[in-house]
Amino acid sequence: MGSQLSLHTETLRQVVTSDPICLDPLAPVREAFERMKEQRRGAVLICREGRLVGIFTERDALALMADAVDLSVPIERVMTPDPVALSEHDTVGAAITRMAQGGYRRLPIVDAEGRPVGFVKVGSILHFLVDHFPATVYNLPPAPHHATEAREGA
């Protein structure tokens, strides 16, 4: 590969997923569960007048399922308010750092007015790294110099 892996200069624009699910703060938790399952998403954003005010993830859902919580309560009662969010102009490296610090696996991306435009997901960052190396890297045995030891009858 001719180019360096430039985590400090590549921006999030190329790894952002678009079209996030946005719910009203008063929507019942049940609606979040149903939309996440239907659309196979791990999180929904909660928006008031178009601005991001909270996030609800599968981790939050797990806790509610384990406790058999009433799912008719408004989502604003169980969401994480004022989540960490980044801009499309932030770097891939910045997203990695924030995710590592906070234990996040996805971060909402907002525009200059605080309107959500999508997510950067940890899986997208892994794909970004994988695409950087030639496919041969991934076809090699884990420890090439030991590869013949297990061969029987040789």
Partner: peptide, 24 residues
Amino acid sequence: VACGQSLSDAHLSDPATAVERGLL
């Protein structure tokens, strides 16, 4: 033999970053 990266082109490439070296 260990990481599969091309050695013949190595002199044309930028030096690997710490992240690249580590991953491989």
